[in-house]
Simulated assay, not measured.
Amino acid sequence: MTAVAGERLVDGYALVVFDLDGVIYLIDRPIPGAVEAVGRLHAEGKAVGYATNNASRRSSEVADLLTGMGVPARPEEVLTSAAASAELLRDRLPAGAPVLVVGAEALRAEISAVGLRPVSRADEEPAAVVQGYGPQVGWVDLAEASLAVRAGAPWYATNTDRTLPSDRGPLPGNGSLVAVLRTALNREPDVVVGKPEPALFATAARRAGSGRTLLVGDRLDTDIEGARRAGLDSLLVLTGVSDVPELLAAPESRRPTYVSFDLAGLFDSAAVVRVPGEPEFAGWSVDLTAGGLTLRGAGRPLDALAALCAVAWSASAGPQVRAASPEAEEALAALGLSV
C-alpha cells in the first residue's frame, strides 16, 4: 500500500510550497533532483511557492539566488518572513503608519513596499516594532525598539531562529537578537511570523485561493510544525536536518502527513508514504518490546517506516529498533537506523 494508492502525490494539491535550505539547496548548492523537480512542476503548470524565515533578503533577491542555481523562480513565488511580516502589518495598520524597523535593509524595503513608513527612533511614535535579522543590528537599534515597546507599540518578530547556517558553522540568528529584547522587556513578542508559527504558511496558502496546499520541508521543528499549525498537509524529505530517529520520537505537533527520501516523492507513488501506517503494513509488522521496536517482514523501506511510526507514535516509544529478518536489516539500514 502506497501513500496515494498509485496516484501522484502532487496531483492532489493546487500549490506546492517549498522550504529552501535542506529541501531545494544546501548552503549554496542545489540538492540533487531539486532543479528537475521544480522544472517539472512549472512544465505541468503547477503553482509553486518558496517560504523562508530569512528576513535579510527581499523576495526578488531570493528568486535571483535560486535562478542562479538553476532552480527557476520568480519573485512573486517567494515569501520571506520579512514580506509576510510586512503584509500582516499592512492589514493591521492604517496606510502610511510609522513602523520602527530593526533589521536589514530588505525588511525596511518590504515595509515601504506595502505603504507603511519605516522609522528608526522611538520618539517618532511608531505604531509597531518589527524585528528581523540584520548583520549590522546593534545596541542602539535594540534600545530604540525597547523604548517603543515599553511605550505601547506592539512587537512583531519575523522569526525566532536561534542560529543561521554558514560555511563556518551556526551563527547567531534573529532569535538570539529577539532574546536580548525578551530579557530587557521581560516579555515575549506579540507576534512571531516565521516558522513554526502559522502566519508564514497561512499567507502562502492564501495565494493558492481555494485549492489545497502542500508544504515540503526537511525540519520537523519548523517546517512540519508550522504546516500543522496552519492546517496544511506536509511532506518531510530526508535531505536536510530531520532524520528517521527524530521522526519516530516526534510529538504529535511535529508529525508530517507524508515522508519521502527526496523530491521524487512528489511524482512517484512508490517513493512516498503516508504516515503513520498500521503495525502490520505492506508486508511489515512491528512489535513493541521492552528494548524498543522489533521490525519483521519484507517490502519497501518507506512502508517499514510507516509501520514503525504507527507503533512508536501510539506507544511513545523511542527510535531503538531491532531487525528480526535480513530484509528488515536492509530496510533499517536504508532508513539510517542502527540495527
Rank of each mutant, 00 (worst) to 15 (best):
D303I: 09
S269I: 10
A148E: 09
G173N: 10
S176N: 12
D287C: 06
L142N: 00
D11A: 13
L288P: 01
A122S: 15
A83S: 12
A51G: 11
Q131V: 08
S234P: 05
D91N: 12
D287S: 14
A113Y: 02
L9D: 06
D223E: 10
P154C: 11
L177N: 03
Y156S: 09
R182T: 15
D223A: 10
T239L: 04
R58Y: 07
A282S: 14
D243V: 07
D167E: 12
D28E: 11
A82Y: 04
A227Y: 02
D243I: 07
A290N: 13
V137L: 02
A227Q: 10
R206A: 14
V62G: 04
Q136W: 07
D167I: 13
L305C: 12
E225D: 06
E144S: 11
P198R: 10
A230W: 05
D190N: 12
A205E: 07
L235R: 07
A271P: 09
A143D: 15
V237Y: 07
Q136G: 10
T2P: 15
E197H: 14
P135M: 09
R121Y: 12
A148I: 02
P126H: 05
R74L: 00
L295K: 10
E144K: 00
G175S: 12
F261V: 03
A230L: 03
D218Y: 02
P154A: 11
G96M: 11
P319C: 06
A331P: 09
L214Y: 04
R300E: 15
A95S: 12
V311S: 08
A290G: 15
R255K: 14
R57L: 03
T158D: 06
G152M: 13
E36Q: 03
L214M: 01
A208S: 13
A143G: 13
S260R: 04
R57S: 09
R207V: 03
S59H: 03
L332H: 12
A63C: 00
A47Y: 06
S269T: 14
L171I: 14
A148W: 04
A37K: 01
L65I: 00
L41I: 05
R58A: 04
G96F: 05
A312I: 08
L79I: 05
E36L: 02
A307P: 08
S314L: 04
L93K: 12
A86E: 02
V193D: 10
D141S: 01
G283W: 11
V35C: 01
A331K: 01
L41K: 10
R168A: 15
V99D: 06
A271T: 03
F261R: 14
L247K: 09
L215F: 13
V78W: 00
V192C: 11
S166T: 15
R74P: 00
S242H: 06
